[in-house]
Design a protein around this nucleic acid. Sequence first.
DNA 1: AATATTTTTCACCTATCGTTCTGAAAAATA
DNA 2: TATTTTTCAGAACGATAGGTGAAAAATATT
Lengths: 213, 213
Amino acid sequence: MGRHKGYDREEVLEKAMHLFWRKGYEGAHLQELVEVTGLNRFSLYKEFRGKDGLYEAAVDHYLGGLRHLSEVLNREPLGMANILEEVRLVVFSDFPYGCFMTNALTQQEVLNERIRKRVRDFVTASEQMVLKNLEAARLRGELSPDSDLAGLAKFIVTFDIGIVTFSTTQPTQEDKRRIYENFRLMLTRGTGVQSPGSGEASDAPAVLVNRTR
Amino acid sequence: MGRHKGYDREEVLEKAMHLFWRKGYEGAHLQELVEVTGLNRFSLYKEFRGKDGLYEAAVDHYLGGLRHLSEVLNREPLGMANILEEVRLVVFSDFPYGCFMTNALTQQEVLNERIRKRVRDFVTASEQMVLKNLEAARLRGELSPDSDLAGLAKFIVTFDIGIVTFSTTQPTQEDKRRIYENFRLMLTRGTGVQSPGSGEASDAPAVLVNRTR
DNA sequence: AATATTTTTCACCTATCGTTCTGAAAAATA
DNA sequence: TATTTTTCAGAACGATAGGTGAAAAATATT
């Protein structure tokens, strides 16, 4: 009953998300959102009830997409290799606009409280995923028993946030190689873990990664 | 000759900078800027040629302020201790709005080309300051002769960017302590350098620090 | 005191913001 | 086919954005 929708909600969200991603909440004007999504204003309001709602839906869309993107940190066997792989993917991502969620961290003053909480919770969730791998790593003897795992998880997430933001300066491939290699050395020598060595980028996803599609 | 200005340029810039800092370029509306600076629209336009000019002047103001703020990385004797001290100050800063310049990194799409370059150059300059300390550290035997100093500098700056951004999640003092301690362990054990140990925050300034005044 | 010079005040401008409304087109149901 | 339901395209909404012009107010010079 009724006319068919001329748009696909997920496609619209994907496009809207990318505009918010590049321009930020205030920087992404409704006119641009209409143009880039192809969705007209009326339908946009009916579906998302305004700019706030669209942004919030875009956050959900991003988070939903992360379910399969976080597979690196969730895949067995858990341990340091997963963490290094995740960081490697983040470092070698070619998307130069940071991370949708961590960009939002510096926009909290113009976001409503609910979204602000969502954004902060994302950081906590990332920590938890890293921590899970660290705990497994300790059980497997990759880390000394007295390591501060929670602190180490925070350190790693902090570095992730740093690298996605640093990526906006358009570092060269060589720059990225050196940054990752130094991180790997720090982490392995600093914790005494066995290292899987450095490598090239792949298309696989990561937690704080710059999703390009 | 003529009437006195009812405002102090530096004070105006300080206040404008803080609003841009918290809200971002698009998020800081002219009306708010007028209210917070106390300067009326016309005088604001006359002095700074509009919002762009004001933002650019605020960047200059910030950078100017950093001249004496970068003293930690520039003070003798150069070496790893300076770097650890600088990171420590960044970590323990209580200002929860990130760093004015690194926040701008994620707003590049709404900034004009000149400012964008200014912002990126800031990152490069920070790298150079860290690098200078690393080179001195190598000469002093704090680092092995075959270390990749430029890469290590990028790693450290990346971590700095990460921590100022992470600070927007309002981490506890204990969280900060653990993050810094893990960074210190990574850096010292990862490079084999002598560590000065961890400590509390001081009021001294730093390079990527959150300036609160 | 008079004049010149500069800053400030305040009203107003146009453009665009996010939002809402209207009427017509299209598809599903009766 | 007629009716209902929903989407679509666009105009129009009030509010506010950033930017400006002319006159008033205040200071410095003569």
